[in-house]
């Protein structure tokens, strides 16, 4: 599902974010990317989304060579990739329902699809009773669940999560991880960047550790360190 071959990313200011990184992620896998701040986790995620271009090496996501993907096709790539971030990225002036519906609306899904799928997915993340609430009326954990619902409502092949529990307390984090696990179990490939040791240790999934832009460990059923 994701193939990263000998990828190096050097930012314009000369910072080497990733150096000679090779990673292969199979369909349906659940992968943690761990490492200290500045180790290149976020860059890795951004490269997969084609928010940044690799300086060297090849990246394939869902069968597409990102370097050769023309700019106008990038949106179609992203429709196959769900994303969740530390800061939720919810629109404060839209309700829970509207926030999730927005993701389908702007890619041109018809209303009947939206009206069917959005309540369904919000039910799945346990917010079936808060459709008409606004983000600022929700707890952090609930907001992240809305964000997760939005990420998967279009049934992506891949879910990229960049520190999704970074702003949450431990017990709320566990709830989010249960949901990510649930999403993974229905066949979605999940790549999660984190430095939450407790979570990684508890899940016992594949762990790729980055340090100063290099892969220093790639371990199935691994722990944080």
């Amino acid at each position: 599902m994701i193939t990263v071959q000998r990828v190096t990313k050097v930012y314009r200011n000369g910072v080497v974010a990733l150096e000679d990184v090779s990673v292969e992620v199979e369909k349906g896998e659940f992968v943690f990317i761990v490492g200290a701040s500045g180790s290149g986790k976020s860059t890795f995620i951004r490269l997969l989304l084609k928010e940044e271009e690799a300086s060297k090496g090849d990246i394939y996501v869902a069968g597409k060579n990102l370097a050769k993907l023309s700019p106008w096709k990038v949106p179609y790539l992203r429709r196959n990739i769900g994303t969740v971030f530390q800061d939720f990225k919810l629109l404060q002036d839209k309700t829970v329902f509207e926030n999730v519906a927005f993701a389908l609306d702007v890619i041109g899904k018809p209303k009947h699809v939206i009206d069917q799928r959005v309540p369904e997915i919000l039910e799945l993340v346990g917010l079936g009773d808060k459709l008409n609430g606004y983000p600022d009326e929700l707890s952090g954990g609930e907001q992240q669940r809305v964000s997760l619902a939005r990420a998967v409502v279009n049934r992506p092949l891949v879910l990229l999560a960049d520190e999704p529990t970074g702003n949450l307390d431990p017990s709320t984090s566990v709830d989010i991880m249960r949901l990510l696990d649930k999403v993974n179990r229905i066949g979605t490939t999940v790549v999660m960047a984190t430095h939450d040791q407790a979570i990684v240790d508890a899940m016992r999934r594949r762990v790729i550790e980055l340090d100063c832009g290099r892969v220093i460990r790639d371990q199935s059923r691994g722990v944080y360190s």
């Binding site: 949106p75 629109l91 890619i107």
Partner: peptide, 17 residues
Amino acid sequence: RKEIGIMKLVGATNWRI
């Protein structure tokens, strides 16, 4: 800009934006 950022993330085309 926040809305546009989200639109880009979920794969809205440039023309749609």
